[in-house]
């Protein structure tokens, strides 16, 4: 079709679509769509029976974005900051707004530090981290690791080889460092 004012012709009419697709057009009228318009002022719709919620007790200095006026009245209490990762996280929140890349890059760095700290700490417990069970890699054998990948036109295979390096690499490097350290000490 040349470039004219017409929309490309439809392959199926409304009646044909209605016959083929359960519910076709049930929400054709935007008034039937619950998020149209997207903003609809209706304070009675939520179930809230307060103007401003009571404040949850702050059991440790809760880190917060400097783009907030105050600590929100309710907040999550999972995993309080601790160790070096905690120091980094508190610094990222106290110093940089969400608009600064430094804020997010420090938090991402703190996540990696947290993982290392936690792995090391786990070795002092009765349940050290186990990369075999915790990665779930054994499901490769029970869930068709080979048949799910090969003979398929999957494009993600071009980067899946990186995952074992990312996961196992630090562990292998750590073991290597320990071996080298022990050997160096033994040679003295």
């Amino acid at each position: 079709m040349p470039y004219t004012a017409n929309h490309p012709p439809r392959a199926e009419s409304n009646d044909e679509l209605r016959a083929r697709i359960p519910g076709w057009g049930a929400d054709l009228d935007p008034k039937d769509r619950p998020s149209v318009p997207r903003e609809r002022f209706d304070p009675s719709a939520t179930g809230a029976h307060w103007d401003f919620p009571e404040r949850q007790e702050e059991k440790w200095p809760r880190e917060r974005s400097i783009e907030h006026k105050f600590l929100t009245p309710v907040f999550g209490t999972s995993s309080p900051p601790h160790g070096l990762s905690g120091v980094l996280r508190k610094f990222a929140y106290a110093k940089y707004s969400e608009g600064r890349a430094a804020h997010w890059l420090i938090l991402l760095g703190a996540d990696r530090v947290d993982a290392i700290e936690s792995h090391l700490r786990s070795f002092a417990t009765t349940r050290p981290d186990n990369p075999i069970t915790e990665t779930g890699v054994l499901s490769e054998f029970s869930r068709g690791g080979i048949s799910s990948r090969f003979g398929k036109k999957r494009v993600d295979l071009n980067h899946q080889w990186i995952d074992p390096i990312l996961i196992a690499g630090p562990w292998i490097a750590a073991v290597g460092a320990v071996v080298l350290g022990v050997r160096a000490i033994a040679k003295r």
Binding site: E134, T135, G136, V137, L138, S139, E140, G144, G145, R154
Partner: peptide, 11 residues
């Protein structure tokens, strides 16, 4: 853990 790996690796 197996569920996460299966879902992540699309097995």
């Amino acid at each position: 853990a197996e569920g996460y790996h299966m879902f992540s690796a699309k097995l």
